[in-house]
């Protein structure tokens, strides 16, 4: 890791932790916004930070590790998509919709964006509509506030003849990028929940000794660590693939692997913590409910498994290994 990367990650970690402690969204968002994180993936010549996709993985992972209560990943991706589409840079928090339904007439959009992360707080929101990338000012929408199992805002936005910016998608995969954002967040949340579980079993005593001394506990936390390792490797590799270009295989594989890991991690974390981890008061549920919610967001196991399986089957049995190696050899 270079020195500037180390500073970036140190700053991100600190700001995300501060954001978690903030009382209002504005306070939580303010410092992160002021530090210029939103332009992480925008090139320097366009006044951006000029970070790499690997940097983005690390920052998104830290957002998951700190469970930052802000759409920082969504905003970073929206800024990059906006830049690539030729839209003007905009200030403030932005978001992405998994699903947009509606029609465009005379430069205006009528329709609905569903489950938009922090839709109520976002300035602009992006989505794919057919073969177009569209961007709208969220202020023009009627907001139907909702939240995920973890309490993160997931709002419906209803637009009625709202002015819309459009650009050809040109291969941009809004849903896939958001899926990789969740993959990175799952990687971070897995490591955070694992660290909490390790601390807990080293402190908690039963039968006269810390429960970490029991092999049953050691074996299950080892399995947890394996799953955390798998999702971290998968996430890192998928973002590396993004840096090389087309990453549809890696996106599907990484989000699917992360989904599988999230289920195992949340279950073992709770088992290790016993009853205290099931309380509102304890910190653990913030992670386990996020792991559970993020597994469903931007493609559950079924979605990505079928999609990936169909694409592998279509290419044929003898194309799989050459394809796998060709993609990584291109690095």
């Amino acid at each position: 890791m270079s020195e500037s990367d180390a500073i970036l990650l140190e700053t991100a970690g600190r700001l995300f932790n501060d954001a978690r402690a903030a009382e209002t969204f504005e306070t939580a968002w303010g410092e992160i916004d002021a530090a210029g994180f939103a332009s992480l993936l925008v090139p320097e010549e366009a006044d951006g930070f000029g970070g790499s996709w690997r940097d983005a993985f690390s920052v998104f992972r830290l957002a998951g590790y700190a469970r930052a209560p802000v759409p920082i990943g969504e905003t970073i991706l929206a800024a990059r998509l906006s830049h690539d589409a030729g839209f003007d840079a905009v200030a403030g928090a932005c978001s992405l919709a998994a699903c947009a339904e509606g029609r465009i007439e005379n430069g205006c959009f009528t329709g609905v964006f569903s489950a938009v992360p922090w839709g109520r707080n976002a300035g602009f929101v992006l989505a794919a509509l057919d073969d177009q990338l569209i961007r709208l000012n969220a202020g023009a929408a009627a907001v139907n506030e909702n939240q995920s199992l973890a309490g993160e805002p997931r709002d419906g936005l209803a637009f009625e003849g709202a002015p819309v910016e459009t650009a050809r998608l040109n291969g941009a995969d809004v849903f896939g990028l958001a899926a990789l954002l969740r993959t990175a967040q799952i990687a971070g949340a897995m490591d955070a929940a694992l660290a909490m579980s390790i601390d807990y079993v080293n402190e908690r005593k039963q039968f006269g000794r810390p429960i970490s001394k029991f092999q049953a506990i050691q074996q299950s936390l080892a399995q947890f660590a394996e799953e955390a390792a798998a999702v971290n490797c998968a996430g890192d590799a998928a973002f590396a693939a993004l840096a090389r270009g087309e990453a549809s295989f890696e996106t599907a594989a990484a989000k699917l692997r992360a989904n599988m890991a999230a289920g195992v991690g949340a279950a073992i974390a709770h088992q290790a913590h016993g009853a205290i981890g099931f309380t509102q008061e304890h910190e653990l549920h913030h992670y386990t409910t996020r792991l559970t919610a993020w597994r469903s967001e931007f493609g559950n196991d079924r979605y990505w498994a079928r999609r990936l399986g169909r694409s592998v089957a279509k290419d044929g049995a003898d194309a799989f290994w050459p394809g796998l190696t060709r993609r990584s050899d291109a690095a």
Binding site: A230, W304, G309, A313
Partner: peptide
């Protein structure tokens, strides 16, 4: 074959993802 049913596609997808992730590790 090139056009498997949903459950077979999901199985192929799952195994593909695991092989890919293990290879990265």
């Amino acid at each position: 074959g090139p056009d498997p049913d949903d459950s077979l596609a999901a199985l192929i997808g799952r195994l593909s993802a695991e092989i890919w992730a293990l290879r990265q590790m």
